[in-house]
Measured scan of single mutants.
Amino acid sequence: MGFKLLSKLLVYLTASIMAIASPLAFSVDSSGEYPTVSEIPVGEVRLYQIADGVWSHIATQSFDGAVYPSNGLIVRDGDELLLIDTAWGAKNTAALLAEIEKQIGLPVTRAVSTHFHDDRVGGVDVLRAAGVATYASPSTRRLAEVEGNEIPTHSLEGLSSSGDAVRFGPVELFYPGAAHSTDNLIVYVPSASVLYGGCAIYELSRTSAGNVADADLAEWPTSIERIQQHYPEAQFVIPGHGLPGGLDLLKHTTNVVKAHTNRSVVE
């Protein structure tokens, strides 16, 4: 069995187990497998329904001669939608809004960016022009300005110390501490036991640490421990890039980060 097929099978099995364990909360999309990078042309966006009122959005972007996937989250909030992270750029984010209108038909009224990198804030200006209120932590807003990236308009308070959590509509926002970046936030959907790890969490097929220019490698494993301790009931975990899975993604990420750190020390 090929690795790609095995990865998709694991996603399907995880979703099936969740649907059985929580039949009222989960209505997993039966329309197909989780979209992969090879299936999404740059400039297009796919939506994948995880649970009743919960979707991931998947886009792709060219970077350094390669094409990478990027995940975000959409959560229903009454007759409105909360968006977590842009679709990595203005063109993708405009396509995301169009796809949401086509498939869901509810307005996106608020959006949260989970850290300051372009795959999370690139497209904020498109959201703002569409009347979406954009939010991020003060740290993310400051770092985005320093980096020359787009800056969300509103500040999220109460997320300055490791372990801080605040309720934001249908989700809980959690600051686990520094990891992929010093400002990275985690998003949890309690009604569906869905954990969105953003770039602080890796997919299972990833074996290298990737972009760690703004990471705190020493603190990252401790931050992941905080996530595990705060959300032990999480059933569906979405990484910032690639295929979702279960809580095993947290341990896998820790292993990859520690291996990278150990290699760096040896070198």
Rank of each mutant, 00 (worst) to 15 (best):
V124M: 12
G210F: 03
D183P: 00
A133F: 11
P23L: 11
L47V: 12
V212Q: 12
P239K: 02
T254C: 08
G123A: 04
G242M: 05
A98C: 08
V187T: 04
V54G: 02
G32W: 10
S223M: 02
T109W: 06
D248T: 10
I224D: 03
E219I: 10
A136M: 03
E39Q: 11
T14W: 05
S137I: 06
S155M: 14
Y202C: 05
L73A: 04
I238N: 02
P23R: 12
V124F: 05
K8C: 15
M18P: 07
T60R: 08
V194L: 09
L127I: 03
T153H: 13
Q235R: 11
G245T: 03
I58Y: 06
L13W: 11
N71F: 00
A59Q: 15
H230L: 09
D248A: 11
L217W: 08
G32H: 10
R141Y: 04
H260I: 09
S22I: 11
H117G: 00
G105H: 15
R110C: 05
D118Q: 09
V171N: 00
S181I: 01
P190W: 07
H154N: 10
L13V: 15
E101L: 07
W88N: 06
S193G: 13
H241N: 01
G245C: 04
S208E: 14
A133V: 13
E203W: 03
G105K: 11
I84S: 01
V194Y: 04
L24H: 14
I201H: 05
G197P: 06
L97N: 00
S22Y: 09
P221M: 10
S7A: 10
R110V: 09
P138H: 08
S137V: 05
L127V: 02
D248Q: 12
P176Y: 00
G2N: 14
S208Y: 10
G72P: 03
A15E: 06
F3N: 14
V37W: 13
A218N: 13
T207Y: 10
V75R: 03
A98F: 11
G240E: 05
V108D: 01
S139A: 14
S30A: 14
W55E: 01
Y188N: 04
T254F: 15
G78S: 09
V194E: 01
G122V: 07
H180P: 01
Y175K: 01
S137N: 08
G131D: 07
R128G: 12
G242R: 04
S137M: 15
D164V: 07
S38A: 11
L97S: 01
A21Q: 14
A98Y: 15
N92W: 04
N255Y: 14
H57T: 00
M18N: 15
F26T: 12
P190S: 10
N149T: 08
V266F: 13
H241W: 01
L173C: 04
A15M: 10
I238H: 00
S27F: 11
E99P: 01
I227Y: 01
V132L: 03
Y12Q: 10
E233Q: 13
R226K: 09
Y202R: 05
V132R: 01
L243G: 09
